[in-house]
Design a protein around this nucleic acid. Structure first.
Length: 934
DNA sequence: TTCCGCACGC
DNA sequence: GACGTACGTGCGGAAG
């Protein structure tokens, strides 16, 4: 296959420059070597990953010809190239030459024109063409079959986008229209002036209406207000912009296939160049990865060190995770893929479908509903699939009595323990069906969770999975119900034929995804975790969400009034002290008052958007100077409490149950933790007295119930001790010591009883830092102490807990060699950047490497405990319910006579979720509200 | 509508 | 010496 890459040279240099501009490196002659390095990196990635047969770097020259005389004006808008960058250009040319890559100069035309024209000609000559001009990802929309090679923001990975994806992003069917937009205003290509006040969105709408830029201008009298004014005033500029941004496909350049051939890299040219530029790491990569040669000793490559400055052995770089299988050339979709989607809308067809499904061992299903809140919506239809490219759709009547009757026909099917159900995010479907008195049973296969285990850091929605793993682009839901927002339609109003295609396709795709993921789960050793933890947990979470929790509306309403009063009082005080009325909730205005008007801190820092920083730490530091800062902190706390909790919680009470039903997301947190939303029950305040009040509003079901809260004590630290086998820490836990006090005693070299609250607080912060993968910087921030001091504490910590340091080193080495780390139960997290040449990016991966096994193991542990507790409740026919999970805490609505029995089960199951040497401690409490129970 | 700054929990 | 430093969710304000 002939594979051609066309790269815009100047744009690439600029891109490399900007990517590294925060930390540029220079030679003594003032050459910007960062830019050269970034450029080299890009070339290396392309050659290594894409193996092109033909390639060229295109440079535009500065001298404009007849193409656009306006071009000179446009150039004038551009900033002159910084001197350090222009000095880098000769080196860039040497790199290109060293790689054996041909150069083309555009001779008066924009590089995009040359690339566009060559791409078009090459396409006709049978090439697969990739263009890389980073100005804008759509700047190369020249043909359906030409791909855009797009550098990603972080690291060196790049993504390839085909024209259909770019179009999808713009939600427009017609390429010409897109080009028209591109040629239009404002942001199309940087530095082209466009028409002020008319952004991409407006331009899109206008062009849809009037057909082209020219059309819009001709019809400007139909517009009104500022828009009309701008279009008319800047009409000429708009046309020029379009001309400039339009890519020529007929520039005077011939496709000389031989001249575009990629030749082999030249060690003779590259080696001295890299030595001169001191490119150690990238040099090493070029020689080992591209030329497959030994590292030349002449370069004297430095040792790479670990977090503690110790040298590490560099393992061979490996591919970390299988790339999803997909041929970028062919994206399948419903129109080009043969399929049989049946509509089952008569008694006969429904009976036939039920018969078919009943006799299969496994089926895939999906439900279409009126909204996203599982506890508050109606089923519009159900779709089923048992084999690829074939599916059924069953419309469900709007009349809820008829709907219930129809769905009840499927009840035995869903409740059949022996039939496996496949779906995407099954918890949702299970919950929805629950409201129709269908209690799903049997083995499950949730494709979302499967992918979550395979690659927890990425996204898991079905559309993306389908495109990545099946090379199939599903019908978008927005094509049925419109785009998000208040105008978004409802499934109920969509034509049945359209829903049928959409819904049946969903079930079909999901089933196909199962086929892809099932073997992958096996090869990545995630079977057990999937089968024994995540899958059973679906039922547990569904039950918890269905159960919900009772909220004391009256208490919250009273508290809201009290907060409001206090806020008003504080507000008045603040206005008095500031001498001006302003919006305290606006960080922008607040910053101006504090630092411009009151001049509280002449050195006040600003955020990247140019506002003054007014965060918690800034105001705290200010509070000794002026008590206005303290007042502002107080008022913020109260406003936060009021808006996020006190006033919002009652709004989430479900009218049908009178309770609040949170939703747990099982597939977002990359470490394996759950997250919760609507409401987020996992961030209900606890630290401050006023915050704690909110917890009083979480109450038992009725007077016959009581809330029980069970908390793991120091679970993460116990797991660190367990995993690292650090003797000192294991000892401390074995003796039942307070771990932070014990840590302080060790770190400061004093007796336990000599530890004061300050030392304990420091030790606690280090312990937390370890859990969260913090650095010395993070620690110094959280303790508000100098970095050096923080570093000293950390160093002594590692001296005392040498087993932990050893564990960290081992984990990091494991990650470097294998590309992933894992928890006690084998939950993996892939760390693509663990061997990255970029220190920041690598540091990020390194912290994750330490942190993921710990947090993840704790997550595993509580998940297992939840499953066992749920099962025990069921086996022992208890009426008490588990209602909430907050990372290391479980909350139960207990029928009072069952309290002792429940406590026994909970303690037993939590302590013994997995076998450990380090004792696991569970603290329990009960009471008439969450605060009392805690 | 989208982004930002901020704040809450673990 | 500079870089930029757990993860989530959700609020209000500001800007387009």
């Amino acid at each position: 296959m002939k594979k051609l890459f066309l790269l815009d040279g100047m744009a690439l240099i600029y891109r490399a420059h900007f990517a590294l501009s925060k930390n540029p490196r220079f030679t003594s002659d003032g050459v910007n070597t960062s830019a050269v390095m970034g450029f080299t990196n890009t070339l290396l990635e392309i050659l290594k990953k894409e193996s092109p047969t033909h390639i060229a770097v295109v440079f535009d020259t500065e001298a404009p010809t007849e193409r656009h005389i306006e071009f000179t004006d446009y150039k004038a808008h551009r900033q002159a190239m910084p001197e350090d960058l222009s000095k880098a250009i000769p080196y860039v040319f040497r790199v290109i030459e060293g790689f054996g890559i041909p150069v083309i100069t555009s001779d008066g035309y924009e590089a995009d024109d040359i690339i566009g024209t060559l791409a078009k000609k090459a396409e006709i000559a049978g090439y697969t063409v990739f263009c890389m001009t980073p100005d804008k990802d759509f700047a190369q929309l020249v043909s359906e079959n030409i791909f855009v090679y797009k550098p990603s923001r972080m690291g060196n990975d790049m993504e390839i986008m085909g024209v259909p994806e770019v179009l999808a992003k713009w939600e427009i069917e017609n390429v010409l229209q897109v080009i028209d937009i591109l040629g239009m205003w404002g942001d199309a290509v940087d530095n082209i002036p466009g028409i002020p006040g008319i952004g991409e969105k407006t331009a899109k709408l206008l062009i849809k209406q009037f057909g082209s830029v020219e059309g819009v201008i001709a019809n400007s009298h139909l517009l009104k207000g500022k828009m009309k004014e701008n279009v008319e005033k800047f009409a000429e500029q708009g046309l020029v912009s379009k001309k400039l941004a339009t890519i020529l496909l007929n520039a005077p350049v011939e496709l000389d296939e031989d001249a575009l051939l990629l030749s082999s890299p030249s060690r003779e040219l590259l080696e001295p160049l890299f030595a001169e530029l001191e490119f150690r790491t990238i040099g090493r990569r070029v020689f080992t990865e591209l030329l497959h040669e030994e590292i030349p000793p002449i370069l004297g490559y430095g040792q790479q060190t670990d977090l503690f400055g110790q040298p590490v052995a560099l393992p061979e770089l490996k591919t970390l995770i299988e790339e999803p299988e997909q041929d970028p050339l062919v994206m399948k979709n419903i129109e080009n893929t043969p399929h049989t989607y049946h509509l089952a809308d008569s008694p006969e067809t429904i009976t036939e479908l039920i018969n078919i499904l009943s006799s299969s061992e496994s089926f895939c299903f999906d439900s279409e509903t009126t909204c996203l809140d599982a506890n508050n919506c109606q089923i519009v239809g159900l779709s089923f699939s048992i084999k690829t490219n074939e599916a059924w759709y069953v419309p469900v009547p709007e009349d809820q009595v008829l709907a219930a009757a129809l769905i009840s026909q499927f009840k035995p099917l869903f409740e059949n323990e022996n039939i496996e159900k496949t779906g995407q995010n099954l918890k949702y479907d299970i919950l929805v069906l629950n409201w129709y008195d269908v209690h799903v049973r049997g083995n499950l296969f949730d494709t979302m969770l499967a992918h979550y285990l395979l690659d927890p850091d990425t996204r898991h929605n079905m559309d993306i999975l389908s495109e990545n793993y099946l090379g199939y682009k599903p019908v978008e839901i927005t094509s049925l119900i419109g785009s998000k927002g208040k105008n978004q339609g409802n499934m109920r109003d969509v034509e049945i034929e359209l829903i049928k295609e959409y819904a049946a396709e969903d079930a079909d795709i999901t089933l196909q995804l199962k086929g892809v993921f099932e073997p992958k789960l096996h090869t990545s050793n995630a079977d057990a975790l999937f089968r024994n933890v995540e899958t059973p947990l679906i039922y547990v979470l569904a039950d918890m969400e269905r159960e919900g929790v009772r909220i004391d509306k009256v208490a919250l309403a009273e508290y809201s009034i009290q907060l409001e009063t206090d806020i008003r009082i504080l507000e008045t005080t603040i206005y008095e002290k500031a001498g001006v009325r302003f919006n305290i909730a606006s960080p922008k205005q607040l910053g101006e008052v504090l630092f411009d008007k009151l001049q509280l801190d002449p050195k006040a820092k600003k955020t990247k958007t140019g506002q003054y920083q007014t965060g918690e730490d800034v105001l705290s530091a200010l509070s000794n100077k002026s008590d206005i800062a303290r007042d502002i902190l107080d008022i913020r706390q109260l406003q936060k409490l009021k808006s996020t909790y006190v006033d919002s919680l009652p709004l989430l009470i479900n009218p049908k149950t009178g309770r609040v039903h949170t939703s747990y997301n099982q597939a977002v947190a990359a470490t394996g933790r759950l997250s919760s939303n609507n409401p987020n029950l996992q961030n209900i305040p606890i630290r401050t007295e006023r915050g704690r009040e909110v917890r009083k509003a979480f109450i038992p079901r009725d007077e016959n119930h009581i809330l029980l809260s069970a908390d793991y004590s120091q679970i993460e630290l116990r797991l660190i001790a367990e995993i690292s086998r650090d003797e000192n820490m294991m000892d401390a836990f074995a003796q039942g010591l307070d771990i932070h006090t014990a840590t302080a005693a060790k770190v400061y070299g004093i007796a336990l009883e000599e530890v004061d609250s300050n030392k304990r607080r420091n030790a606690k912060a280090v312990n937390f830092g370890i859990i969260y993968g913090q650095s010395a910087f993070g620690l110094s921030q959280s303790l508000n102490i100098p970095r050096k001091e923080a570093a000293a504490i950390i160093e002594e910590y590692f001296n005392q807990y040498s087993g932990i340091k050893q564990y960290m080193n081992d984990t990091m080495n494991f990650a470097r060699e294998n590309g992933y780390v894992q928890t006690l139960m084998g939950r993996r997290r892939y760390l693509r950047d663990i061997n990255s040449a970029n220190a920041t990016v690598r540091g990020f991966a390194e912290r994750n490497a330490i942190n993921a096994p710990i947090q993840g193991s704790a997550a595993d542990l509580i998940k297992v405990a939840m499953i066992h507790i749920h099962q025990d409740f069921r086996d022992q026919k208890l009426e008490s319910k588990m209602t909430m999970q907050v990372h290391d805490e479980l909350v139960f609505d207990v029928v009072i006579p069952e309290l002792e029995q429940v406590k026994m089960i909970v303690e037993n199951r939590m302590k013994n979720a997995i076998k450990t040497t380090v004792p696991i401690l569970v603290e329990m409490g009960s009471g008439t509200n969450w605060l009392k129970a805690h």
